[in-house]
Simulated assay, not measured.
Amino acid sequence: MNSFKFNKSDYTFILIYFAGASIWLLYRWNVENYTSFEMITGLPGFIIKNLLLLYIFKWLINEYLVVRKNYVVFILLAFVAWEVVGFLDMWRDYYTAEPSWKLPSFGVMLVDNFYRSAADSVMLVGIILGKKYYENKLDYARLESAQKDLELKVLRSQYDPHFLYNSLNTIDALVEYSPKEKVKEYISHLAALYRYLIHTKDEEVVSLHDELGLARNYFYLIETRFENDYCFKIMEKEEPEANYLPNGALLTVLENVVKHNEASEGNTITTQIVIEKKAVRIVNTLSKKEVSAESMGTGIKNLKKRYELLSDRNVAIEATEHNYTVILPLLNLVK
C-alpha cells in the first residue's frame, strides 16, 4: 500500500551525499585545471541534474513499478529521462566551457548524453533504493509483529473471554425474560461477530462495508445488553474516495467508547459514525467522569501504530469537554 516516498532520513542522506560529492568534484576539477567559472556553473548543474533525475525516477518507480508493474515502459522512460537531462547538461557545459568545444555528431551525442546522466545518477538512486528496500523490510517485519499482536488482542483483549462471558450472561437473561425470537436474534448477531473475526484474522486491511457490518452486530449486542445506556448511528455524508480500513479499526474505537464511558441516569452515551470523503469520523458523547485523550487505553495507540505501518496517513483525535472524536483515514489498496 505504501508508495515509494522520501522520509526525513532520506533527505538527510541526500544532503550529505551532495555535500560529499561537491567536495570531491571541486577537488577533481581543481586537479584537472577547470576555471573558476566552470566550477561555479558546474557544481549547481551537477546538483540540479541529479535532483531532477532522482525525482523523475521516484515518479517512474511509483507509477510503473509499484502501481502499473509495467517494466518495459519503465525502462524506456528511464532511458528517455537520462537522454533528455543529459542533453540539457551538455548545453550547460557547452556554453560555460573555457575554451569552447565543438558539438559532437548526433550518434556520439546520444551516447555521451546517456553517460552524462546515468553515471552520476545511478549511484544516488541506487543507494536510495537500497536504503528504502531495507527500511521496507523492517516495516514489513514490524507489520507482521503488529498483526500477530492484533490476533492476540482479538483473542485476549478486545474480544476476550469477558466479552463472551458478558454476552452469555445477556443471553441467559434474555432466555428468562424475552421472547424466543429476541434470543435467537441476539445469538445470531453474536455468532456473526465471531465468525467475521475468525474469517478475517489474517487480513491486514478489510473493506469499509465489512467493518460497518461488524459494527452493526456490535451495536446490537451492546444496545441489547445495556438497553438505553448506549446509542449508535451511522451517517453517510458523501461517497468515500477510498474503501478500506485496518482490520478491526472501527471496532477498536467503538469498544473504546463502551469501555471508558459509563452512562448515568438520563445521560445516554451517543456515538455517531460519519462516513466522509477521505475518512471515517467516530464522535461520542462523554460520561460525567473525566476522561482525557491520553487515558483512552492501548487500543487507540496500537491503532495509530498500525496506520503508520500501513500508510502515510495518521489517526486524528479531537477531544472537547462534551465529545471525543476519532478520525480514521480511509485507505486505498495498491495492486
Score class of each variant (00 low, 15 high):
S207W: 15
F6Y: 15
V258F: 00
S9F: 10
E176S: 09
I234L: 05
L221K: 02
E185R: 10
L124C: 14
G248A: 09
D10T: 13
A173I: 08
K58S: 04
L124M: 14
V315G: 09
M1E: 00
Q158Y: 07
Y324P: 00
S167Q: 02
N228Y: 04
A119H: 08
V183R: 12
E308P: 01
Y64A: 01
E98S: 02
L77I: 07
G45E: 06
G20L: 12
T200R: 12
E185L: 11
A279S: 14
F37G: 05
L190D: 03
A279V: 06
E151S: 10
F79N: 06
K259M: 05
V67S: 09
V205K: 04
V183G: 14
S105W: 12
L310R: 10
A215M: 13
N217P: 01
L168M: 14
Y11K: 13
E185K: 13
V183F: 10
Y11M: 13
A319I: 12
L251Q: 12
G107E: 04
S145Q: 11
S117V: 06
D10F: 12
K69S: 07
F226C: 11
I273V: 15
L221V: 08
L65Y: 05
I300V: 15
K137L: 13
R281Q: 05
N136K: 05
V280A: 01
I275W: 08
L26C: 06
E321F: 07
G130V: 06
H199V: 11
L164R: 01
K102Y: 09
G266P: 05
I222D: 00
N267Q: 10
D149W: 07
V274H: 01
V108E: 09
A279I: 07
L251M: 10
I23V: 14
S311D: 13
L212T: 03
L174D: 08
P99S: 05
V183A: 14
S311E: 12
K49A: 14
A242Y: 15
K137P: 00
A215P: 08
W29Y: 08
V205Q: 04
